[in-house]
């Protein structure tokens, strides 16, 4: 079906060992995309290195309908242990856009120029203002409604690690995976 039409990647696409990247995940653009160790990428997600490379760290979970687009030449960097739920959008220019241990809930948007620190939570359907930098361990509940949650980073890292363990067993049962192509 739709998955069959996706051609073999012409994009330089680097998958580290132990990463679980489904074949149905769409990879577009002309620049390189690096996926770190242990990262899980669900089917029907879109990673588009439109104008510059994208670097995804290790132990992230990227669920379906997530869009990660880089529209500048600077590499777009996403840290480790992040959870990007269904329909999250990371748009705009490159740079260090996301730290470690963040949780982005369903349909939240990271607009151009925004970056978030470590251990943040973006609630469902929330968005940041353009150019905003979110400090560590902030929880965004709704526009203008946010609070701090100390220790969130550690909690997120643990939750994500456990979840990855389960997904590593579940996903290969029903999906073809992209093979690791990095020689160590």
């Amino acid at each position: 079906m739709a998955a069959k039409t996706v051609a073999a990647p012409t994009v330089p696409f680097e998958v580290q060992k132990d990463a679980v990247v489904c074949q149905e995940a769409k990879v577009q653009g002309v620049h390189s995309i690096k996926v770190g160790q242990g990262t899980v990428i669900h089917p029907a997600s879109l990673i588009n290195a439109q104008a510059g490379p994208i670097v995804i760290g290790s132990f992230n979970i990227i669920e379906e309908q997530v869009e990660i687009v880089n529209s500048s030449e600077v590499p777009l960097v996403i840290g480790d242990h992040n959870m990007l739920e269904v329909g999250v959008k990371v748009l705009g220019e490159g740079g260090q856009r996301m730290g470690d241990g963040n949780l982005l809930e369903c349909r939240s948007v990271l607009p151009p120029g925004c970056s978030i620190g470590h251990g943040c939570t973006l609630g469902a359907c929330t968005s940041l203002e353009e150019g905003e930098v979110l400090s560590d361990e902030t929880v965004v509940v709704a526009p203008g409604l946010r609070h701090l949650e100390p220790g969130a980073r550690e909690a997120h890292v643990q939750a994500v690690s456990k979840f990855i363990e389960v997904l590593k067993e579940t996903l290969p049962r029903c999906h073809h995976l992209r093979k690791s192509n990095v020689k160590t």
Partner: peptide, 11 residues
Amino acid sequence: SRNSVLCGSQN
């Protein structure tokens, strides 16, 4: 729809 994504359709 042919443009829908059914993962693990045996389930």
